[in-house]
Amino acid sequence: MSVRFENVSFRYPGTTTGVFDIDLEIATGELLAVIGPSGSGKSTLLKLLSGFAVPDTGRILVDGKDVTHLPPHERALGVVFQSYALFPHMSLWRNVAYPLKVRGIPKTERQERARDALARVGLGDFAERAPTSLSGGQQQRVALARALVFSPRALLLDEPLSALDAALRHGMRDEIMRVQRKAGIATLHVTHDQEEALSMGDRVAVMSAGRLEQVAMPRDLYDRPASRRVAAFVGHANLWEGMVVAPGLVSTRLGELVCDTAGFATGADVIALVRPEHVVPLLELPSGPRPNVFFGHMAEDRFLGAVRRCDLEVGGGTVRIETSIRAAIAAVAVPPDAIRLLPPESPSPTRPAHTGNPS
Rank of each mutant, 00 (worst) to 15 (best):
M1Q: 13
V3M: 12
V3N: 09
G14K: 13
G14A: 14
I22T: 08
V34C: 15
P37G: 14
P37I: 07
S40I: 00
S43C: 06
T44D: 04
K47Y: 15
S50V: 14
G51S: 02
A53N: 13
V54W: 11
T57W: 07
I60A: 02
L61N: 11
D63C: 01
G64F: 06
V67E: 09
H69T: 11
P71V: 05
P72I: 05
E74P: 09
R75Q: 10
A76N: 15
F87V: 14
L92P: 01
N95V: 11
Y98G: 01
Y98K: 07
L100W: 12
K101N: 10
I105V: 15
E112S: 10
R115D: 12
L118T: 13
L118S: 12
A130S: 13
T132F: 06
L134M: 08
R141H: 04
V142R: 06
A143C: 08
A147E: 03
V149G: 08
S151H: 13
A154E: 02
P160D: 15
L161N: 02
A163G: 03
A163N: 12
L164Y: 02
A166P: 06
A167N: 08
R169F: 04
R173T: 11
R178W: 06
A183Q: 02
A183G: 01
A186W: 11
A197T: 08
M200V: 03
R203S: 06
V204I: 06
V206A: 11
V215R: 05
M217T: 13
D223F: 03
D223L: 02
R224G: 08
S227M: 04
A232E: 12
F233P: 03
F233A: 07
V234E: 12
A237H: 15
A237G: 00
L239S: 13
V244D: 05
V245C: 09
R253S: 00
L254E: 06
L254F: 05
L254D: 01
G255E: 02
E256Y: 13
V258H: 13
D260C: 12
T266Q: 08
A268Q: 00
A268F: 06
P276R: 09
H278T: 05
L282H: 11
L285F: 11
S287N: 04
R290F: 08
V293Y: 03
F295E: 00
G296H: 11
H297C: 02
E300P: 01
E300T: 14
V307D: 14
R308D: 14
C310N: 10
C310A: 11
G317M: 04
V319P: 03
I321E: 01
A327G: 03
A327W: 03
A333T: 01
V334P: 00
P335F: 07
P335I: 02
L342Y: 05
E345M: 14
E345H: 13
P349Q: 10
T350F: 07
T350R: 15
A353E: 12
H354D: 09
T355V: 12
N357R: 10
S359R: 09
